[in-house]
Computed example of a mutant assay.
Amino acid sequence: MGRGSLRASLRAAKHRSRIMTQYISPETLKAWREGTAPYAAIDVREPMEFNKEQIYRTTNLPRGWLEFRIEVLVPVKDTPLALVDGGEGRAERCAETLAHHGYSRTAVLQGGIPAWKEAGLPTVSGTNVPSKEFGEEILHEDRIPEIEAQELNALIEGGGPLRIFDSRTEAEYERFSIPTGVSLPGGELILHAWDMDQDKSSPLIINCAGRTRSIIGAGALHRLGVTNARALRNGGMGFILAGLSLDHGKKSEIPQPSGRSRAHGEKLAARLAEEEEIPSLSPDELRALQEKSGSETLYLLDVRLAPEFRKGHIPGAISIPGGQAVQRTDEVAAVRAGTIVTYCDANARATMAAYWLRRMGLPNVYFLRGGIAAWDAAGLSSETSSAPADGESPSAGG
């Protein structure tokens, strides 16, 4: 090794020695969770480990994805950041990586999940647990009517008038779907509400793979005045458990709303925003927030369909169509106290997404008034995307 290489190695070793791992106790993390100040808790274990057992409202970001996703999940680098693992040392290695990337307030949960449990604190299991819990709350609070798999199958086999709309993403629909079901991601429902409400006699069913998006989709229609909508109890999984047949590989062909229904959706959104006091921002106000995004956490969510995002979006936006924004909130907003701004082409889809996010308890949610059309009209720049936005997973522009 030459002298130059040796000196560089010694400097790197000296720098690493200065990075001292900070720790927090389970009690301190509990206090963070119960407070209102911005923070993030990132679980760096693999998804299977995380799904088996996790601290409620932590965000899973495995070590192998840390450098690719951390700046989207925690954009402000001096945000207090707790790293969680199984107590075996992965979090310490992640803390060192984050220190090299400028994260200055990172701390490791001392002892990981085992220490959390030893302190008598609870864990949960599953995927997207906060959203699923929220769905169950909406089911009971809003009294969303459901239909069982066997009853729906009998209606399908009966051949009578029937409308089934699959509120999942296009990719999920193409893997499997309920026979006769039509692909219509949940964020689009507000644009179709008038069209759906013209037929008040034919059964109107919203389904997903399990429960949450069925409930949220039917709940959205009820909130918008389409009161004959029902959620398929347990979704496609209910069909599987009942031994009923599903379609596989059917191409997603999302129907277009009529012009009248689209316009009515905008009127419904205006009424919803007024009744629920959902705040909005002008393009200039959003631009001002973006200028402060180095010191104040901002999540800008494009809730349109993925092809719309790819054609042109606001710089810094994350593609996550409306139904997914509610289903996978924990994969987007790691800092719950941050500011969330939703936008679409105009107002309808963004307002509906903001409504649900606010009902989930997120404290600082707005929609962009007039959507990307207003942004463009204000002379502000948009960009196209090389990112593989697919409507299923959150995807940052780039």
Rank of each mutant, 00 (worst) to 15 (best):
A396P: 02
P161G: 00
I55P: 03
K117E: 07
M48N: 15
N234D: 09
N364E: 04
L61S: 05
G35Q: 12
Y343I: 08
F134A: 00
G112N: 07
A389Y: 01
E34L: 09
R57D: 14
V129F: 06
I314H: 08
E133D: 14
S104V: 08
Y173W: 09
A334M: 13
A31F: 15
A31C: 10
I216T: 01
R93T: 11
L121A: 12
K200F: 08
R63Q: 15
S183I: 07
R33M: 06
G294W: 05
D199V: 12
L81Y: 11
A325V: 02
G186C: 15
G316T: 06
R63M: 15
M1H: 07
F68R: 14
T36D: 05
A13I: 07
P26D: 02
I19W: 03
E277W: 01
G217K: 03
A107Q: 14
P75F: 05
L241N: 14
A119G: 03
A13P: 00
R211I: 02
S382D: 00
A82S: 08
A306Y: 13
G235P: 12
D390Q: 02
K132G: 09
F165V: 14
T339Y: 02
Q324I: 11
V129T: 09
P75Q: 05
S385V: 07
L152E: 04
A154L: 11
V72N: 15
L121Y: 13
V74H: 09
E172G: 11
P38D: 07
A220R: 03
D247G: 07
R349D: 10
V303W: 00
F309N: 04
N51D: 13
L73C: 08
G370I: 02
M196I: 06
A325Y: 08
G322A: 11
G111K: 11
R328W: 04
W65Y: 09
V72K: 14
A242N: 00
G316A: 12
I372V: 13
A82I: 02
R211G: 07
Y39W: 00
C344Q: 08
T28D: 14
S381F: 13
E296H: 06
A171H: 07
L357I: 00
S280N: 00
N228M: 09
I70S: 13
E136I: 09
A348E: 05
L232W: 01
A171C: 04
I206Y: 02
S293K: 11
I113K: 15
H313Q: 10
S25H: 09
G158K: 08
V76R: 07
D43T: 06
G338Q: 04
A273P: 02
L281V: 07
T339S: 01
I156A: 01
W32D: 07
E88N: 15
A273L: 06
R328F: 02
E92L: 03
C344I: 07
P307T: 14
L289K: 05
G235T: 11
A346L: 12
D199A: 14
I254N: 06
T21N: 13
D345K: 12
L121V: 13
D376C: 08
I320N: 09
Q110S: 15
A231K: 09
Q22L: 14
Q290I: 06
L184P: 00
H248P: 02
P75T: 02
P179H: 09
